[in-house]
Amino acid sequence: MEWMLQYFEIFFALCLLIVGYGFGRLAEKRHYKSIFKREKKYQELLVFSLKTPPEGLTVTDSRLVTGSVVVSIDYFKKFVAGLRMLVGGRLRSYETLVDRGRREAVLRMKEQALLLHADSVINVKVETSSISKGRRNSIGSIEVCAYGTALKHA
């Protein structure tokens, strides 16, 4: 009986890995597709990290805009990252996580700016924080917040 239980545990973990791999990949692909699509769509709205508006512009209105998102890594990727940490080096599975989070947050900020009919967004700050830090069995989920000042030009 004991050995069966042990096998069951291994089987269960494997199932989680497979589910994580399958759905995680699918979700990531879909997310990237939507990111690319929206990035193209909002291309005209210029975003700067400069503190002052480009010279020669007459600004008529300014407003704070923010965008934030919480994304998490899937079970499979977390497992792979765990293995990777034994030897060190690049954690590619986490790289896509933060990349997705940042781009999504900036896109949401742009969406908000477009709702205000803004022409550009300046002084953009992007901030990342881990929300499940210090917890045992913590899953890698991060919160990304992007904020800036939306400007209307004359």
Binding site: V19, G20, V70, V71, S72, E104, E143
Partner: peptide, 23 residues
């Protein structure tokens, strides 16, 4: 719910909303 969602990764909408409200 977030724990379940963690299995497959992706956006955790509940948390996003929560943090936005808090902000």
């Amino acid at each position: 719910m977030a724990g379940l969602k963690n299995l497959v990764g992706g956006e955790l909408k509940g948390y996003t909303e929560l943090l936005q409200d808090a902000r």
